[in-house]
Design a protein around this nucleic acid. Structure first.
Lengths: 206, 206
DNA sequence: AATATTAGAGAGTTGTACTATCCAATGCAA
DNA sequence: TTGCATTGGATAGTACAACTCTCTAATATT
């Protein structure tokens, strides 16, 4: 398969595929001459993955590159790799700062939920930013709401973990990509559940 | 309060406040002369809201404007307004197309969950996009996972609805802003719940 | 042999989110 | 009251991301 066939297969302009190649999101094809190279099914799959990450998931090209690199070649154990991957996923969180207690809201929230609090983990900073944003905007999250969301998140995590492959490399891919790819699904389901609940309540009140 | 005081209060450069003014995210102050105007607490709150939406929530300036306009002046009933607001929130979904069954995956998913399916609702398109992206990337969502996520989403929606204010204008603000502002919190909690569950499993296996 | 395609590199384009510069009109301080 | 910094408003400029186009020499196709 040459480049034009690859681009057609992925539904992308040739120029865009070349751009992804330059940016390192796609590994080069096997050269058959100075100006020819062939691509295979792996390239097609990779392009589909890239499109999924920069499309519905909403990653930038550089973030997608980082995530895919981590999946391709995990640097350390699963938890380190996952931590790094989560750190590159949006929303971007501000760096810790020098305070003795850099994430007070997140720490309080996790303690209330009875979960481990490790300021090193990137999602803690994201939680802090999200809680601060909600509070700043005038809709702070109280203990009851936190408990409701936390227990839903725990349910989901328990399910996800039950499905995690045993083989380390597959586990990394599953966890990192599952985090990125399933989040939009969850958000859409939440929005639809709101709609569904509202419609049902409206019907009941009639 | 004049502009420099407003900007200082919000922690933003004056030039940025002027930019938001131009883009219609912030209403003008009350003019006290040809080159003077005063701003009040409402402007400070509005700026905090804008920063929350374009920061942790990740909206573009134009999306934030649309959402805030809807909250300020809902055009119709709650459900129409909410639908419009959800439509402007990321992830952007492709337009329906001309197919007789434009959202097959989303329809199947909602039927499996026993929820109403209305192709007009923007989140349906988002669900379709998210399900398609996961499948294209090689990690399709099966019935069991859908059920797990769906029931978590339903739990959250039930809680959210129980807290909805009765007064229509407040209900719109609560629902629209709650959708936008609480989503990052939920995502962060899910990521942390994964971490927590993984740590616990690791500890158990030792 | 003539024509079309390709890989690879570089420059150009478009859109977003600011950021800086001007200007005339004010406010304020000495 | 006179000098000077500040303000609101408009316009222009900057920086970056994500493509998109153009070019060239080599290669494949007819």
């Amino acid at each position: 398969m040459r480049m034009s066939a690859l681009a057609a297969e992925a539904g992308l302009p040739v120029a865009t595929v070349k751009y992804y190649l330059r940016e390192g999101l796609l590994h080069a094809g096997t050269a058959t001459g100075a100006t020819q190279a062939v691509y295979d099914e792996g390239h097609v799959r990779r392009l589909r993955m890239v499109r999924a990450l920069v499309g519905p998931v909403g990653l930038s090209v550089q973030q997608a590159r980082t995530v895919l690199d981590l999946v391709d070649e995990p640097g350390g154990d699963l938890y380190t790799t996952l931590g790094r991957a989560v750190g590159t996923l949006p929303p971007a969180a501000a760096p810790p700062g020098e305070a003795s207690d850099p994430y007070p809201r997140a720490r309080a929230a996790l303690e209330a939920l009875g979960q481990v609090y490790d300021p090193e983990f990137a999602a803690v900073a994201q939680l802090e930013g999200a809680l601060a944003a909600a509070a700043d905007a005038g809709l702070p999250i109280d203990a009851e709401r936190l408990a409701a969301y936390g227990s839903a998140a725990t349910d989901i995590a328990a399910f996800d973990l039950s499905r995690m492959p045993a083989e380390p490399h597959a586990a990394v891919a599953y966890t990192v990509l599952g985090t990125a790819l399933y989040e939009p699904v969850l958000l859409a389901l939440r929005r639809l559940a709101h709609q569904d609940a509202a419609v049902r309540r409206l019907a009941r009140e009639e």
